[in-house]
Design a protein around this nucleic acid. Sequence first.
DNA 1: GTCTATAAAAGGATAGAC
DNA 2: GTCTATCCTTTTATAGAC
Lengths: 201, 201
Amino acid sequence: MSPRNEETNKQIRDERRDQILRAALQVFARKGLTATKISDIAAAAQLSHGLIYHYFKSKDEIFTVLATQALDTSANIIIQASNLPATPWERLKTMTEAIVPAAYQGIGPYYFLIVVQAFTSEAVPPQVKELAARQSTLYTEHLVPLIREGQQRGEIAAGDPLQLAVSFTSMIQGIAIEKTLGGEALPLPTAEIILRLFKPA
Amino acid sequence: MSPRNEETNKQIRDERRDQILRAALQVFARKGLTATKISDIAAAAQLSHGLIYHYFKSKDEIFTVLATQALDTSANIIIQASNLPATPWERLKTMTEAIVPAAYQGIGPYYFLIVVQAFTSEAVPPQVKELAARQSTLYTEHLVPLIREGQQRGEIAAGDPLQLAVSFTSMIQGIAIEKTLGGEALPLPTAEIILRLFKPA
DNA sequence: GTCTATAAAAGGATAGAC
DNA sequence: GTCTATCCTTTTATAGAC
């Protein structure tokens, strides 16, 4: 029980935990929660399935951790950009340009797919369902005033602000889905194209 | 074995088959293929689970039937509108206005969710995966020339036609997802808003 | 900390009665 | 045509060895 062993062990534990989460993220994104077997995660992480249960209580717990990370991250992008000292249009632009790379690059798309599942599937743990619902209202609470303000300044097309907000989030989610189809790399919409949804006629 | 009994039996069989498919459509859409238990479908259809196997060979077969219906229907909308005798913009408008009610009304959204699953989940039967891949190329084969033509006429914004086609299909899929969140009825984008993606600056 | 072997449960699919 | 009871595979989760 020397201090050095303690520390080394903690490092190993953290490393393993991360390893499992990284592996689970990709399998969950591709197959969904229920279709993912613990043995799938174990294989992807190159660990025995027994060890998974040493680090997590259940499959649902792993999914919940990942979904929480994903939902929090996306919420933070919205909130941060909403509070910038800039015009509504510029804030919307900044927001979109922050989301686009997150949706397109690296492991970002996997997280988006987890979010999609959190929103769409009833097979998800209740805790995740609740969090998703809360985040959904959070989006509109930040986006709607932003859009309304932009409309008053004539920067954004007229119409129901909530409808525009829904259009925006729909587009983002749709892109994340499209991103996963592509074994071939499809050319995904740029921030400029997405922002056309808000352009006055 | 009188003719009357034969006919009546056929009616009953057709009725039951439809009943099962209708029930399965909604459960699959909400929970996904793997998370849906045969007993879920049976409960939704108000039939015993044993009877489901009298009409279908397996859970996968039911899903495959529904996915095929859904993918064929969506492909037909694209193809039909593509071949109209009208300007590219008008064809795109017709197409969008045909998709919007299909995505918003009645059981349409459920079918869209099945399509989303066909595209995104690896847990889906291989046959469905192949069909989805084929439909995906079909979309672009019809949309890309349409967009290119519209660009030549100055009706559609410049840029990679494939990228615009992907933007369009992403938006549609995203809307179908958003539609299912809403216990509360969210105001979904109109065809007019969707078409802004193609509007020249 | 990690693995293998085993128990326990869940769910898909079938058989046979009505 | 329909249901209930049963089988059996799959998968989750645990126990114990290393």
